[in-house]
């Protein structure tokens, strides 16, 4: 039983990270009907920005002296990474997606794949393909609860995710930007006619989604210890599946989907075989798309004839 709870704890913390990334996919899809493949690289860049920011703030020196990295500096690292990724996300939208926004659906999809490849390969060039050990922005403390090992890092992941989601909820439901985002996702043309600056709203969506992915990137680095330029590919794909599972375009759906994917992955790894931990995501994807393409929390739309 304690093994089960261990897998659940691990699954939920991994799932929280997926959820953070899935939010970006789902928000962009909700507004542009675009699968933003480059989102997984925005996540990767977020993790690397955190890595370099922590280095610049002298984490190595502190580590050698055995001193912990101060919490306020950890927050600085988080904010720097979130800002950098937000900027990157906005740039990608501005330079690559906006020119093809009104083209047939496949054009933006392939553009997104192209941007993803571009950032990945630039990442290999700039960051080198070697995996890097993630700096201990938060020093790990382990404690046991009834046979289940919990670390302060896992707790941090829950807390940060929870805080960011509360922030996102406030932003989407209670601010003008959020209202504009919701309006644009229902009908872009109508929103434009109502005087909403759709370009600005789309930029804001990319900024917010990318910032959340960066937070996911740092938490991922803390949780998985190493990062590399290809880390986004599989993780991004899983997060996307999470968004589809929850109902793409649906914000609470992304969270539910992320947690479920994380749980499923850990349970398969623990009880079936670690070899199939990646395959389960794709099995879930296929089953959900074939049985209920609108996802758990999505709604069905009928095509007009």
């Amino acid at each position: 039983m304690s093994q089960f709870f261990q897998q659940v704890i691990n699954g939920l913390s991994l799932g929280s990270i997926y959820a953070l990334i899935a939010l970006g996919y789902t928000m962009v899809y909700g507004i542009l009907k675009l699968i933003n493949f480059a989102h997984s690289e925005v996540f990767m860049v977020g993790a690397y920005t955190g890595f370099y920011a922590a280095g610049a703030l002298g984490i190595e020196g502190l580590e050698q002296r055995g001193a912990a990295f101060p919490l306020y500096l950890a927050l600085v690292v988080l904010l720097v990474a979130m800002s950098a990724s937000a900027l990157l996300g906005v740039l990608v939208e501005r330079l690559a997606y906006r020119p093809v926004r009104s083209a047939p659906r496949l054009t933006p999809l392939i553009t997104a794949i192209g941007v993803s490849l571009l950032l990945q390969n630039l990442g290999m060039l700039v960051f080198t393909p070697n995996p890097r050990r993630y700096p201990p922005i938060i020093k790990e403390v382990r404690f046991e609860l009834g046979g289940v090992i919990v670390t302060n890092i896992k707790l941090t992941i829950f807390l940060v995710t929870l805080a960011l989601m509360a922030g996102l909820w406030y932003l989407v439901q209670r601010t003008w930007t959020g209202r504009a985002m919701r309006a644009v996702s229902v009908n872009l043309d109508a929103a434009k006619l109502m005087g909403i600056d759709t370009n600005r709203t789309i930029s804001a969506t990319f900024a917010i989604g990318s910032a959340l992915a960066a937070a996911g990137g740092i938490l991922f680095g803390l949780d998985q210890i190493t990062i590399n330029p290809l880390m986004g590919t599989l993780t991004g794909l899983k997060a996307f599946v999470a968004a589809v599972l929850g109902g793409i375009g649906n914000i609470p759906g992304a969270v539910v989907g992320g947690l479920l994917i994380g749980l499923a992955e850990q349970l398969v790894a623990g009880y079936v075989s670690p070899d199939y931990r990646d395959a389960i995501t794709f099995v879930i994807l296929i089953v959900i798309l074939i049985l209920r393409p609108e996802g758990i929390l999505g709604v069905v739309r009928q095509e007009k004839v």
Binding site: K33, I35, F282, V283, L285, I286, L289, I290
Partner: peptide, 26 residues
């Protein structure tokens, strides 16, 4: 898969492609 259209079909084929590869991998 072919009951799905557009992006959804694309993603399902991606999923199947990865599953096939993972099967060979194992």
């Amino acid at each position: 898969s072919l009951r799905l259209k557009g992006d959804y079909l694309a993603i399902v084929t991606l999923g199947f492609g990865e599953i096939i590869r993972l099967v060979f991998n194992n």
